[in-house]
Amino acid sequence: MIIKQLSIFVENTKGRLADIADILAKENIDIRALCVADTKDFGILRLIVNDPEKAAIILRENHCTVALTEVLTIKIEDKPGGLAKPIRILSDHGINVEYMYAFVSKEFDSAFVILRVENNEAAIKILLDAGVTLVSSKEIYDM
């Protein structure tokens, strides 16, 4: 249920994101989802890929500062309140969502949301009890 996300430090210089995408593409790493959080000077690029361990090694070889962060992915039901419900359940149980971002898969014809929470184990239990669909790492990597 736990998925490894790459967190990459990027300077806000032109073309840096493209460079990183190129480095990964050359090694046949597929990007499933991404999000950039940034200020004027620098940013953190967050990536979900098909092989995070290998990607981390490749990026470090290319002098990137990279961390692997454990996140959760939930499948969103295609109806109003589909996202609100799981978030509310977590917050009702005192679990804070530090950040989240979404992506869609044509193949599955549905939307997924990546969640970074403080306590993955507790969050998994709460979400499963509430009937939320969690996606396994294998499903994500093989997507």
Binding site: F9, I44, T65, A67
Partner: peptide, 15 residues
């Protein structure tokens, strides 16, 4: 140069 990757989880940590 930033070398500590453990700070990457939180934006705040870098700031």
């Amino acid at each position: 140069e930033l070398v500590d990757s453990s700070l990457l989880d939180k934006f705040e940590a870098l700031e």
